[in-house]
Amino acid sequence: MSAAGWIAIIIAVVAIIVIVLIITMSGRRRREADRAKAVEIRQKAEADALGAREHEAKAARAEADAKQAEVDAERLRREAADRQNEAQDAQARAAEQARRADEIDPDVKAAPAAAPAGAHAAEPTVAPAAAPTTAVPTTAPATAAPETEATRGVVGPDGVRRDPGV
């Protein structure tokens, strides 16, 4: 073989080695790039998973808040019903006390069996005064509130005692 042949073979071998090195290097770079891209995708997936867990936690808190609001609303409904019952009981007791006071009061006569339209059956009537008399002032006990027109009622021209609020 001549020197030119040997030079051609050496050049061909060197070229093949360079080509193999280039392919190997580019493969390594590609694998490194793929690894970096995979790491980036994994980090994004972890961030997305964390965000999803945060949304789930917020949804669970919102649901718990809604359930607590329902419990509070039910409790408030029951309290309102209890207070309404207490108010009705207090009104019934007050009406019973007023009825008993009217039974005892000699100036109040019993209501007629057929009350006129618009009159309340529970309203007692006051006997009209026969003649003006001079009344001897009486003193109320120290613990009683002063009697006013609002507390004693109003006697109308027909002689019927009426509550001023009616």
Rank of each mutant, 00 (worst) to 15 (best):
D72Q: 12
A144R: 05
A4L: 06
R30W: 10
R161F: 00
V136T: 15
A57E: 13
A113K: 15
A150F: 12
G118A: 08
A12P: 01
G27F: 11
V155F: 03
R100C: 03
A145D: 08
N85D: 10
A3D: 12
I16V: 13
A49R: 15
P164N: 04
R61L: 13
A117C: 04
R83M: 00
V18L: 13
P157Y: 01
R78D: 02
V126K: 08
E70D: 14
S26A: 07
K109F: 04
P128L: 10
L21K: 11
L76K: 04
A15N: 05
A49T: 13
A145F: 03
A81W: 00
A142D: 12
R53D: 09
A3L: 06
P116T: 06
R161E: 04
R77Y: 00
D105F: 01
A119K: 09
R99I: 00
A142K: 13
A94I: 03
Q68T: 06
E54I: 14
E123R: 15
R100T: 05
I9T: 12
A127H: 08
V39H: 05
G165L: 11
V39T: 08
I41D: 12
A90M: 02
Q91A: 07
Q43K: 14
R61Y: 04
R77W: 00
G153P: 00
R77N: 02
W6C: 04
M25E: 06
I22Q: 11
A15G: 14
A101E: 04
D48N: 11
R35P: 05
A64M: 06
T134I: 12
P112C: 04
R53H: 13
R77H: 02
E63T: 10
V108Y: 00
K44A: 15
E56C: 06
P141I: 05
A73S: 10
L76A: 14
A66D: 06
Q68A: 13
K44L: 15
R162M: 04
E63G: 04
A38P: 02
A4H: 10
A117M: 13
T151E: 01
R161V: 11
A94F: 01
I22N: 08
A94M: 05
V18E: 01
D89E: 08
V136I: 15
D163G: 08
Q84P: 03
E70M: 10
V126G: 02
Q91L: 07
I7H: 09
K37Q: 11
A115M: 11
A4M: 06
A38Q: 14
A45W: 03
I23D: 04
A142Q: 07
R29D: 07
A62R: 15
I16F: 04
A122P: 00
P146I: 07
R61Q: 14
E56K: 15
G27Q: 13
P128Y: 07
E147K: 15
P106N: 02
V154N: 03
E32G: 07
R93M: 02
Q43S: 09
A113W: 03
A69K: 12
R83L: 00
V126I: 15
R162Y: 09
E103Q: 14
R83F: 00
I22G: 12
D163F: 03
R53N: 12
K109C: 01
I9Y: 02
